[in-house]
Amino acid sequence: MTKSQAIQHFGSISVLAKALGVTYEAIRQWDEVPELRQYQIERITRGALKAKQQSGAA
């Protein structure tokens, strides 16, 4: 998911921040949604937003 998709789903950065238990400024600093936050958002939204599958190098 992209940062803009997450913000759009929640309606604002403030609401997203509250849902994640982080500050508004923390989210503003993201270039991309961190991987673990993506999984947290996926769980909070009950799958409405999906975490990107990261390809792990062995």
Rank of each mutant, 00 (worst) to 15 (best):
T23I: 10
Q54E: 13
S12A: 06
A17G: 02
I41D: 04
Y39D: 01
R46T: 08
T45W: 03
Q40W: 07
G11C: 10
M1T: 13
A58P: 13
P34S: 03
I44K: 05
I27T: 10
T2N: 08
Y24G: 02
Q54V: 11
A58W: 04
L36I: 15
M1D: 04
Q54M: 08
L16F: 04
Q8S: 12
A48C: 02
R37D: 15
R37L: 14
I41S: 01
I44N: 02
K18I: 04
E25R: 10
K3P: 01
R37H: 15
G56Y: 14
G21T: 09
E25Q: 15
G47P: 08
Q53G: 11
L36T: 13
W30I: 03
Q29Y: 07
A58E: 11
R46D: 14
I41N: 02
H9P: 09
E32A: 12
A48T: 12
W30Q: 05
G47I: 05
V33T: 04
F10E: 03
T45H: 00
I27N: 04
R43G: 00
L16V: 07
L49I: 11
M1G: 05
Q8V: 04
R37V: 13
A6F: 01
R46N: 13
E35V: 12
W30H: 02
G47A: 04
I41V: 04
Q29P: 03
Q5D: 13
L20G: 05
A48V: 07
G11E: 02
E42C: 14
L49A: 12
Q5H: 05
I41E: 01
I44M: 03
Q54K: 15
G21F: 12
Q29R: 12
V15E: 15
R28D: 06
V15L: 15
Q5R: 09
R37I: 11
Q38Y: 03
Q40A: 08
A48P: 14
I27R: 02
I41G: 02
G11I: 05
K50W: 00
Q40G: 08
F10Y: 04
A51I: 05
E25M: 11
L36D: 14
L16R: 05
Q29N: 14
L49H: 06
A48F: 09
R46H: 12
L16P: 14
Q54D: 14
A17I: 00
Y24K: 15
Y39K: 11
S55V: 08
Y24V: 13
Q29M: 13
V33I: 12
K18R: 14
G47R: 01
S14V: 06
I7N: 03
V33C: 10
T23H: 11
A26H: 06
E42D: 00
Q54C: 06
I7C: 00
Q29F: 06
L20K: 00
D31H: 10
R37N: 13
I13C: 00
S4H: 15
G11T: 10
A57T: 06
Q54I: 13
I7H: 01
Q38V: 00
Y39A: 07
Q54R: 15
A51D: 13
T23N: 10
A57Y: 09
R46F: 05
V33G: 01
G21P: 01
K52L: 04
E35H: 07
E42Y: 05
Q54T: 15
R37P: 10
T23M: 07
G47W: 00
T45V: 02
V15R: 10
V33E: 03
A19Q: 08
A58K: 12
I41F: 07
K52T: 12
